[in-house]
Amino acid sequence: MNYQFNWSVLWSGQSGGWLLHGLLLTLAISVLAWVLAAVLGIVSGAMRTVPWKPLRVIATFYVEFFRNVPLLVWMFFWYFGVPPLLPRVVQDWLFNHSAEFWAGMFALGVYHGARMSEIIRAGILSIPRTQFEAAVAMGLTTFQVYRLIIVPIALRLIVPPATNDSLNLLKNSSVALTISVAELTFQARQVETYTAKAIEALTAGTVIYLVLCLGIAAIMTRVERRFAIPGLIARGG
């Protein structure tokens, strides 16, 4: 028994359209979730380092709570757990307007926000405390110090680990298929179901993810170069 490769299944029929559709949905959910994760990560990561305990407690709670529960559980939480808390009319509207997409986006964004928070906190803690003092001594408020000095420096320092987590976010977006988001992995499976060509479908999915990841890594490298702090990051060149 020899496996008969038939790569044309990927562009004949509906396969190509499905994969493209899946790719677009993967990009949409990942980009939105990434923005959410970045905002949550920066805010909570900064909050964890401020000299005011209640803020630190809130941010720590957020991070530990969301980081230590599997993403799959969060997917179900946002899809099954949250809608019943809303008025029936809102629920119906949501269910007719891609509730699964938004639930998946929130699950992914909030979960990765907690991970991003850790990265940003580590970045902030690696900045000498005296930088903060110097800024405060000039009369800047704590908020201004974070906005103008601490966070901008931290963001430049954390590009490599943040890239890593961004790639994880992209790959984790496939978990959204558990709540019926028809993203890339879903569509690859669909192709497999329709064509019974598992290896071709699997390969197509893999190659698309690979290209996306390499693309993101390339963009992030450029970002790192562009915003490198002279003298601080050697490979910024």
Partner: peptide, 29 residues
């Protein structure tokens, strides 16, 4: 597969396993 091909006006929501799909029905998703 049949619904997608023959009844495209339906909004199909595909779940990987039966419990999730059933839960979605129970809750009105």
């Amino acid at each position: 597969k049949i619904i997608r091909e023959r009844y495209p006006q339906a909004q199909l929501r595909e779940f990987p396993d039966q419990p999730a799909a059933f839960q979605a029905l129970l809750q009105g998703q």
